[in-house]
Amino acid sequence: MGRYFKNIFDAVRTILIGMRITARHLFTPSVTIQYPDVKLKLPARARNRLYVNMDDCIGCDQCSMACPVNCITIETIKSTSDVDLGVTSVGSKKRLYVPVFDIDIAKCCYCGLCVYPCPTECIKMTEVFEFSEYERENLIYNFATMTPAEVDDAKRKLAASESTAATKPAPASRGTNS
């Protein structure tokens, strides 16, 4: 019998304690923000959408190999010796045309593994996180800057230089680059 009354007393007491806590919170300022109107500043290391600075890309394919979900597609064309593609901002010489540098951002898992191996620090994760699209195709980002004409030009030049190399008595081991 004593237990019965103690239970009732405990129930009332703990309910009142709980009500006091929620009542106190009724008047504490909220911790949430009005998101699209107010935005928090993301920390400097925030890992969101990838960005590739093509001016610095040397087409080394290391980011593509580091990617655990294979979302980066890179194709390269060798440049001929008469063309100077310039140097990157860290001073390494560019030797490859990069006609295709696609990132399927829909596949990307934002792990950041592609960022670390890049020798020229041209691929990085930005603070942009609002990039939803209605079509999934729009999430395949083409970073390559070459126009189709330039690609054809580069391919033709390479083919020409290889054919001239092939006519010369050159070492047989030198295969054609597709």
């Binding site: 009542a23 919170h25 009724l26 008047f27 909220s30 911790v31 949430t32 009005q34």
Partner: peptide, 14 residues
């Protein structure tokens, strides 16, 4: 609104 403010939220605002 009561639920939201008891839970340190804002609730419907727009």
């Amino acid at each position: 609104k009561i639920a939201a403010h008891m839970q340190d939220r804002l609730g419907p605002m727009r």
